[in-house]
Design a protein around this nucleic acid. Structure first.
Length: 145
DNA sequence: GGATCGATCATC
DNA sequence: ATGATCGATCCA
């Protein structure tokens, strides 16, 4: 269950990897809705679901979640029994998402899919984590499961 | 070709 | 609060 996400835009969002136009790294952000933008940071990968139309970069960074099922698989991939998906890098490791999944459509990534769930009672909105520009925009969204 | 800087994590 | 540690990016 995804509990924490952040929104990133294009040239209009100074904190976005697409703020300075297309590069080799961020090309997946331009592929259109349903694609995965996976990038490497500090020996770890983070996954975004692209939501903007083709040619117009906008994506949702999946920052965290709690296991609903498959705890055992996640624990094996993580190499520990706790902190399975409480961070963007940990979530990718737990779900088996790698840099090779960058640019794929979500339905092309084996073992990973999206399902609708019950809308949470209250969603909190705060500034995004780990960025140095546009820090005032409250584009991080979380809820308590 | 070299310097800089992270959309992080784990542990102190 | 801090260090690990290496790509992508940027500027010569």
């Amino acid at each position: 269950m995804v509990t924490e996400v952040e929104a990133y835009g294009g040239v209009d969002d100074p904190a976005s990897h697409a703020s300075r136009g297309p590069t080799n790294r961020n090309q997946a952000m331009y592929l259109g809705p349903g694609h995965l933008y996976v990038y490497r940071i500090h020996q770890v990968v983070c996954a975004n679901l692209v939501v903007g139309p083709e040619g117009h970069p906008a994506a949702v960074l999946i920052r965290g979640g709690v296991p609903v099922e498959g705890d055992r698989t996640m624990a094996r991939r993580r190499g520990r029994a706790d902190h399975l998906a409480d961070g963007p890098g940990k979530l990718c490791q737990a779900l088996g998402i790698t840099i090779d999944d960058d640019g794929l459509r979500l339905d092309e990534v084996s073992g990973v899919w999206l399902e609708p769930g019950e809308p949470p009672d209250a969603i909190e909105s705060t500034p995004r984590i780990g960025i140095s520009r546009a820090t005032e925009r409250p584009w991080r969204f979380t809820f308590q499961p």
